[in-house]
Computed example of a mutant assay.
Amino acid sequence: MELVIDIPFIWTALKEIIKALPLTLMLTVIPLIVGFFIGLVVALIRVYEVKGLSAVANGYVSFLRGTPIIMHIMLIYFGLPMLLQAAAPKLAISSIPVSVFVLTALSLSAGAYLSEVIRSGIISIPKGQAEAAYSVGMSTFQMMVRIILPQALSQSIPNFTNIFIGFLHTTSIAVPSRILCNVR
């Protein structure tokens, strides 16, 4: 049996893939950047066990990590307009693009996953590092920014790449959900 490689088909497929690349990268990178900042705040709340906020942060992470992202997209797409309409009846919800809802859902999901990555990185740093920072007169903020976070984030690079690849794969459900959502 002879193996035949269909070069014209490969070229045609490659051109179609390249057309979708900007949207795919947008749906991957923007939620991960926004999710990083959400995750950083949530991780710090959980590490320092801030009263009142710690339980909310734990619930946020547990819910979003324990449910499928397609459900988050559907909840945001159908639920957020109802909440906004109830809060501000004169607001024109129909003019909001679908991509805003998808980016919001993906960002919230990324925040939950990245909070666990960041939290595990912070916890992995020996307590002696923080004690040494305090002993030279650093504040908690200075200690986190100068000592703990750089080490924690560098140790978390493998986990960040796993999350990036996972969200790159997750963008494939955004297009079908957009099709489903436009049925309304």
Rank of each mutant, 00 (worst) to 15 (best):
G59K: 05
F37T: 08
Q85I: 11
E49K: 15
G121T: 10
I96H: 01
I38Y: 04
L114Q: 13
I73K: 00
R65Q: 15
A88T: 15
V117W: 05
G111W: 12
V117P: 04
R146C: 03
L83V: 14
K90Y: 08
Y134P: 00
L103H: 01
V136T: 14
I96R: 00
L106M: 13
M82S: 10
Y134E: 09
V100D: 01
A133D: 07
T104A: 04
G39Q: 07
L103Q: 00
S62N: 15
T140M: 09
I45D: 07
A132F: 04
I73H: 02
F37K: 05
V34Q: 03
P81R: 05
L91V: 15
Q129D: 03
S62Q: 13
P81F: 04
Q129L: 05
Y113N: 09
V61S: 08
M138A: 01
I73N: 01
S54T: 14
A88M: 12
L84H: 09
M71L: 15
L75G: 10
G137V: 02
Y134K: 03
S94N: 11
A92W: 04
P97M: 02
S139P: 10
S109E: 08
T104D: 03
V100P: 01
P97G: 04
L44E: 11
V145H: 03
P126E: 12
A112H: 10
A87P: 11
M74W: 12
G66M: 15
A132S: 12
V56K: 05
I73E: 00
R146W: 11
G39H: 06
S120L: 01
V100E: 01
I118R: 03
P81D: 03
L64R: 09
L53W: 13
S109L: 00
G121C: 06
S135G: 01
A87V: 14
A110L: 04
T140F: 08
E131L: 07
G52L: 13
S109N: 14
M71P: 04
L83K: 10
T104V: 13
I33T: 09
S107Q: 07
R65T: 13
V34E: 04
Y113K: 04
S94E: 15
A57M: 07
A43Q: 07
I123N: 09
I33K: 01
V47L: 11
